[in-house]
Amino acid sequence: MNAIASQLVAASTSHIDPDIVISARDLVKAFNSEVVALDRASFDIKRGSFVSLVGPSGCGKSTLLRLVAGLIGKSAGELSVLGHGVTGPSHDVGMMFQRPTLLEWRTAVENVLLPTEVQGATTDADRRRAIELLQLVGLRDFEFSFPRQLSGGMQQRVALARLLQTGANILLLDEPFGALDEFTRERLNLELLRIVDDVEATVLFVTHNISEAIFLADQVMVMTPRPGRLAKIVDVSFERPREIALMQTPEFNRLVGEVRSILGGH
């Protein structure tokens, strides 16, 4: 590469912040040219951060996750992951949904191995990794159980282990604990924070629950009703590790009130 070409490359990349892993500018998604699900959203998500996305039903939260995952295409604006425009699914991005969608005829470890099998033949190392991940999410001694033998919370743990098996370092979670009882949900929130810290992942987490959004996140992105716009990004400065008792503190309740006020103002 000659000197002039090197200067041009340097000029084109100098503005890219290596700590920003997801970036959007005036991002728009419309369906059938009529329903605008997401309207001119702009944001940056830093490497290793946990960002919650909260808002009313139909405001575009899940649509935004699917755009980042490359499952659907944008209508307008810019969206990049790890410095590259999103044109389709990427091995760097993994997604988990509200329902675990486990295969009933496969054991927990066999379900976790599914992403590896899709990519090709599994190895003994893959199998050992799957067992380690199940133990990481708190399922020691349940590695060879079938889904029917597991509670709803345990099945979601299997789904989380399967997500980690992909090796993705950007994790998109679409209301993964929304169907669980509050006690199980709180326990899994604590487990999720521990696991995310262990694997040093970047997380974008969709929820309807304001308290859950604040408890988990470094930042909360607050969405307006359709057409979904990004009303405000609220910083959450609580130190980690976090405990459930945090939810009883005045500062936590102040943030809950702030987010609720933002939602109520739209």
Rank of each mutant, 00 (worst) to 15 (best):
Q149C: 04
L79Q: 01
G55F: 09
G94V: 04
V137I: 10
I131R: 12
G94Y: 06
T87L: 01
W105F: 03
L136V: 09
L113A: 03
G152C: 10
G88W: 07
E117N: 02
Q135T: 12
H84G: 01
D39T: 01
K29L: 06
E143F: 02
P56A: 08
L65H: 06
T101Y: 15
G94I: 08
L65P: 15
L113T: 09
L134Q: 06
R40C: 04
T63W: 05
T101I: 12
R157L: 09
R128K: 14
I131G: 03
A69T: 00
R40D: 12
Q149K: 03
A69C: 02
S151C: 00
R128Y: 07
L102P: 13
S90H: 00
R66I: 05
P56W: 03
E34K: 13
A108F: 10
D141Q: 12
L38F: 07
Q155R: 15
P147M: 06
V118C: 05
I131E: 14
Q149M: 12
R127W: 09
V51G: 05
K29F: 12
V93H: 05
S145L: 10
G88N: 07
V81Q: 00
L160R: 03
A125L: 12
E143L: 02
G55Y: 04
S90E: 11
E110L: 09
L114V: 14
F142P: 11
G83R: 00
L53Q: 07
E132W: 01
S80K: 03
G58S: 10
F144T: 14
S52P: 11
L113W: 09
T123H: 06
A125D: 15
L103Q: 11
L27T: 05
K61P: 15
A161H: 01
G60P: 12
S80M: 06
A125N: 13
G85N: 12
L160E: 03
R106D: 07
S49D: 15
V35C: 00
G153W: 10
L38I: 13
R140G: 15
A108H: 09
I131T: 12
G58C: 06
K74D: 01
S62C: 02
L38H: 04
A41G: 02
V86N: 03
L67D: 13
K74V: 01
G94F: 07
T63C: 08
V36H: 08
L27I: 08
G85C: 03
A159P: 14
P115D: 05
V81F: 04
G58R: 01
R47S: 14
D39S: 13
G83V: 03
V86T: 07
D141K: 02
T122P: 13
Q155F: 03
A130E: 09
D26S: 14
Q149N: 10
K74H: 05
Q156P: 14
E117I: 00
D141T: 12
P115H: 05
F97L: 10
V28N: 11
L65D: 14
R140C: 11
L38A: 06
D126Y: 04
K46M: 10
L71R: 00
M95V: 08
Q155E: 14
S90C: 08
D92R: 06
G152A: 01
V35I: 14
V112A: 06
A108C: 11
L82N: 15
V137T: 08
V28I: 13
M96D: 05
G88R: 08
H84S: 15
L64Q: 05
L113R: 00
E132M: 01
E104L: 06
R106C: 07
A41P: 04
I131Y: 09
L160V: 02
K61G: 13
A159F: 06
E132G: 00
L150W: 03
L38R: 04
